[in-house]
Amino acid sequence: MISVKNIEKKFGKLIALDQVSLEMEAGKSYALIGPNGSGKTTLIKSLLGLVVPSAGEILIDGKTILNDWKYREKIGYMPQIGRYPENMRIGQLFDMMKNIRQEVTKTDEELLEAFKLYKIFDKRMHALSGGTRQKVSACLAFLFHAPILILDEPTAGLDPVAVEILKEKVLHEKRMGKLLIITSHILSDLEELSTEMVYLYEGRLQYHNSIAMLKEETNESRLNKAVATLIKQKELLASVTE
């Protein structure tokens, strides 16, 4: 469904993505992990066309996304930091998004109900707490039944009840056969939500396999232990080759 071919992105001297190639299929859920500044968000933004790669190409359903915009109707995106017009009310924001995408007649408002956002529809965006903002972002990502869902640190800043609601929704969508890409630093969340793991380090793709395989390779039963072992192995390997 998504194939990333040798993409490279430089911001001045900094290499944010270095020859990353990746195949992603529908029905699978990908956990995108890596330390801060390893290029996760840059990769996601390249998928959305917000960042234009310096080299390489990205194909979605076999078509290149360069200079294309129509493909974005297939993507639901929840940004890490949701930035919205500050003096708009929540209700107006949702009305606007629905109006902009009139071709989608039936919207998915399950999350809106679950988060009880209807009650605060007349609150302005600048008056929202970080967590409520996250909830708004989550609702917008799921609103248009997009077959690809990209969630950038979805659970950061949410209260435990909201986290459970969101996880439930994500799992539901996964069962519907959607392609999910999730980044997070909370590995226990990812263990529940994802089946595949993609590990980025300093802009390079270090590991890509199913979580089950990773656990087997590292002889660990829990994902956070397995990832820690993986990182240690990589570091050891790096120190040997140096």
Binding site: G49, R72, R83, P85
Partner: peptide, 16 residues
């Protein structure tokens, strides 16, 4: 001031 708005729109299926 409308940077946020533009960012929001650009993640939607709309030409830049």
């Amino acid at each position: 001031n409308s940077y946020e708005f533009m960012e929001l729109m650009l993640a939607q299926p709309i030409h830049r």
